[in-house]
């Protein structure tokens, strides 16, 4: 390979991913114009929060809220939030699967099952009931549990079933049963969409 060819290949390697990024960004935006035209989209929520210096899930301390978990049914949704969360009021969400346990996703555990009690650490907590038959909710629980062990990634888009975040697991579990809990049509699912959904009703809340 002569010097000119070597320089061209050097430039190619350097510019490949920047050009691919631009191309993919154009494809994504052009295919999802309604989302990017919607100022309420979670994308803009995050940008606005980042501009104020908030990047993560908020100020996480052990707030020891005293919410009661009695009366929860399989398929109920539990939301937890910390102050200054960058992507909405709530920073985390899980689905109740019975016997004091929830299915959720977190970065160092992936999609996993754990006791519900850790939701007492959040400052804001809210219990929601999806308006659906018990059989539908059981199917949603079964569907979510199939993805135990799968990888968590905070920016997991809606499409695909290899990469999940806490909200996508629950949204997809219900979507597969014919219930669309995301009325915004956003690219990502954030915990707030369950709170804002017309297909959920509030059971009880603490902290706000």
């Amino acid at each position: 390979m002569n010097t000119n060819q070597r320089r061209r290949m050097d430039r190619f390697r350097l510019l490949l991913f920047p050009l691919l990024t631009v191309l993919l960004a154009m494809l994504l935006v052009s295919g999802n114009r309604p989302v990017f035209n919607n100022r309420e989209a979670v994308f803009y929520t995050y940008i606005d929060s980042a501009a104020r210096g908030n990047f993560g899930y908020g100020t996480s301390l052990k707030y020891a809220n005293n919410i009661s978990f009695t009366g929860l049914e399989k398929g109920d949704i539990i939301l937890g939030g910390y102050p200054d969360c960058a992507y909405g009021r709530f920073s985390h969400v899980a689905m109740y699967i019975g016997e004091g346990e929830v299915i959720e996703a977190f970065v160092d555990y992936g999609v996993h099952i754990r006791p519900i009690e850790h939701f007492r650490d959040y400052k804001y907590v809210c219990l929601l009931r999806v308006q659906a038959d018990p059989e539908i909710k059981q199917q949603a629980v079964d569907y979510a549990c199939r993805f135990q062990g799968n990888m968590f990634y905070a920016l997991a888009f809606k499409p695909g079933d290899r990469i999940w975040n806490c909200s996508k697991v629950i949204w997809k579990a219900y979507q597969e049963q014919g219930l669309e809990l995301d009325e915004s049509g956003d690219l990502w699912i954030s915990p707030d969409i369950f709170y804002n959904s017309s297909q959920t009703s509030l059971i009880r809340k603490r902290g706000y």
């Binding site: 991913f17 920047p18 691919l20 990024t21 993919l24 997991a156 888009f157 499409p159 695909g160 690219l187």
Partner: peptide
């Protein structure tokens, strides 16, 4: 730039 491409690529 591969981080940016990786995030966007995960959509497809």
């Amino acid at each position: 730039s591969a981080i940016a491409a990786g995030i966007l690529g995960s959509y497809y």
